[in-house]
Nucleic acid binder design. Structure first.
Lengths: 143, 143
DNA sequence: CTGTATCCCCAACGATACTG
DNA sequence: CAGTATCGTTGGGGATACAG
């Protein structure tokens, strides 16, 4: 993107382009915002559940799959890999027959528990009110 | 879904079907889990930003659009409507010329601020470590 | 047992144009 | 000023089959 060199009017390239630039900049800012990065992690559908499932100790893969009855293998593996990649849990392979893999929270991952707890507490205390609003709102215009 | 009444072997319809049933049940459970409902709300890309933008008082639509430089009109409106629907903010129309609309947090919505603050604090304290892990992990296998 | 590989769908998000 | 309408892209997430 080059600035207009000549002193020409150039009525175009103003509003829309400025918008685009602002967007790009803001997006870059958002991509670096720690809070948003965290929300993207824990917002993943299975992350909070996996972390909670590991709260009281290591679990095997099949163990997790049973406890999180709704998860597909693909998503469970993907979630675990992402969390491992971020240093939130460890993956330990025991090369026996049959193979055995244990997952456990790291201290960093365990540090997430109080935060998840806070989220859960807020949710249990206030979500009913939120849902009541939602239904009232929908009901009023369902007609 | 009926349980197998007879003591018959019925090799088919077992594993896969049981899986499906478990999934459906678990999904239903998740749909009702307050913590997940909350995560779905605040996980929306613009929700936390909008709530924060309203932290210190009401704002007009165009005001919000300026402060959240990256948001499209569609997403801003959609986010605001969702939050209004959930009783987290109010929408006040002043029928003047030109039209004017103010958005403000309700007490319920303001109650979200401490939680968002907690998320932000955790993120600022620990996300650098998470990102360091991530890069180390990626770098190790980037070859 | 612990995954990987593949295909597919859909909802989120964005871009653009138009309206009261 | 404050939206609505419409279209297109993208990636999250699930189903299924296969592999070490």
């Amino acid at each position: 993107m080059r600035t207009a060199r000549r002193g020409e009017p150039m009525a175009t390239t103003t509003a829309a382009q400025r918008r685009s630039a602002a967007r790009a900049g803001y997006d870059a800012y958002l991509a670096e915002c720690p809070a948003r990065q965290l929300l993207e992690r824990i917002g993943d559908k299975w992350v909070s559940l996996v972390v909670n499932a590991l709260a009281d100790g290591p679990r095997r893969y099949s163990d997790l799959r049973r406890r999180l009855a709704g998860v597909s293998e693909k998503m469970l593996t993907q979630t675990l890999r992402n969390l491992e990649r971020d240093g939130l849990l460890t993956r330990t392979v025991t090369a026996s027959v049959p193979a055995r893999v244990d997952y456990a929270l790291t201290p960093l991952g365990a540090g997430l528990l109080p935060l998840l707890r806070a989220i859960k507490d807020w949710a249990e205390e206030h979500m009913p009110e939120v849902l009541a609003h939602r239904e009232a709102h929908d009901g009023a215009r369902a007609d």
